[in-house]
Design a protein around this nucleic acid. Structure first.
Lengths: 235, 235
DNA sequence: CAATTAAATGATTTATGCTCATCATTTATG
DNA sequence: CATAAATGATGAGCATAAATCATTTAATTG
């Protein structure tokens, strides 16, 4: 029994290894030739298996592409979690996350592009890209902690802050790629500064100034911070 | 000769009319069935022409898709130019542009989605989407004027500001669609306020007015506002 | 009204995603 | 250990749809 189970396990391992091989091959060819330019035969050849075998692992080309993208984002999530050091102050952590994300977008621009082709054929349920959700959760947790500590000064519902962060970075990555430029430090700095210490604006800024000038107690400010925390958790 | 020229012109007009018909048919079918789900035969049928005729007007399916997207953005540019009234103060203009853009993204979400499939097969020159460039120029001109007048408080390079604006709005549109929600006024307000100095009217103004009336401190009023916001979200 | 040019057609060709009958390998059984 | 059953792998063949092109039809010209 022990032997048979061992055999079974090594069998399963072989299957998983083959799945990884297929995924790696598919990623490479998709990136290299574009989705439409990729033939299933190409992927099979690169993975060194028969064409029909692909369909034992994935229902069709679309499902394979979907899996490629999911694996990519899952991997990215892992990297993001490692890139952020929770011991550091909030500003550093945000900086790390933003830098990591922009870096990833630039270095793997083509793979990111596959994401837009991976949404399932319309019809069928909300089987939207799950891993992306896991990815942004890294950001969400960071912001929630920062909000609890009252360090986030850009007062926005969490979802707006999230879309600002990722939307800005992704569009910027596209611009930088288009111009043939690389990583832009000023962009990251501006983004972090905007979220943590926005330029004086509106009542918020006036209030802050007033507080500083008139030496108002921190208690009232603390109340505001707590309220923001609650508000963001609700949205 | 006049007659012949007239004839020739009406001929050209007929061709252009047919081209419009094809484009409209293609847009409808692409949106309805998805790019992959669309057969050239479907488009031909909808445009009431033979399949082969399509290839007299467009080199292939990809080129047709490309043209559909270009026409869409060109049309959107026209709408944006009309939506913004240059006589109004900067704040109103930005508000109009942001509202128009978010509205367009939401109402024509599927067409916008086609944009990501319209980049030409890789290889071949920088024939990137031109009309999008024309579209963002509306924003650029607005910002340049605002900068000259010193009305822009968010000091960023133009390209960063542009990517912030469009990136945030597009990601937000996706979020709103995913949640099945519609136009979000607070998003627009926050975006405009972030870029410009505090408003003289709107939510901020109401608060300021109330401040003046009740002679309450800004801080206390801010607390009241936040409580109201929370209250609304809970109901 | 020929004659010439341009436009339109759709049967045919070509390409490729996917299926399935067959073969190979692994696991279960007496 | 032998044999049966189950699972995995294969690639020739099928079906679908994009693109082509010889042919027909329509428009333009002198």
């Amino acid at each position: 029994m022990t032997a048979s189970q061992k055999e079974k396990k090594s069998q399963r391992e072989r299957l998983e290894a083959r799945e990884s091989t297929i995924l790696a091959a598919a990623t490479a060819v998709f990136v290299d030739m574009g989705v439409d330019g990729t033939r299933m035969a190409d992927i099979a050849a690169k993975a060194d298996i028969a064409e029909g075998t692909l369909y034992l692992y994935y229902k069709n080309k679309q499902a394979l592409l979907h899996q490629v993208v999911e694996a990519f984002w899952a991997n990215l999530t892992h990297g993001a979690e490692q890139a952020v050091d929770p011991a550091l102050p909030m500003r550093e952590q945000l900086h790390q996350l933003a830098s990591y994300h922009l870096m990833a977008l630039l270095n793997q621009f083509d793979v990111v592009g596959l994401t837009y082709r991976a949404r399932l054929r319309h019809g069928e349920p909300e089987q939207q890209l799950g891993p992306i959700r896991g990815y942004v959760r890294v950001f969400d947790r960071l912001i929630e902690r920062g909000t609890d500590r009252g360090e986030i000064q850009l007062m926005l519902p969490l979802w707006q802050l999230r879309d600002l962060f990722y939307g800005w970075l992704e569009f910027s990555a596209r611009t930088l790629m288009l111009r043939g430029e690389g990583f832009d430090q000023s962009l990251i700095d501006n983004l972090v500064t905007l979220i943590l210490a926005p330029p004086k604006q509106g009542v918020e800024a006036a209030k802050a100034d007033k507080d500083a000038a008139t030496n108002t107690s921190n208690l009232e400010q603390e109340i505001l911070n707590r309220l923001s925390a609650i508000e963001q958790k609700l949205s």
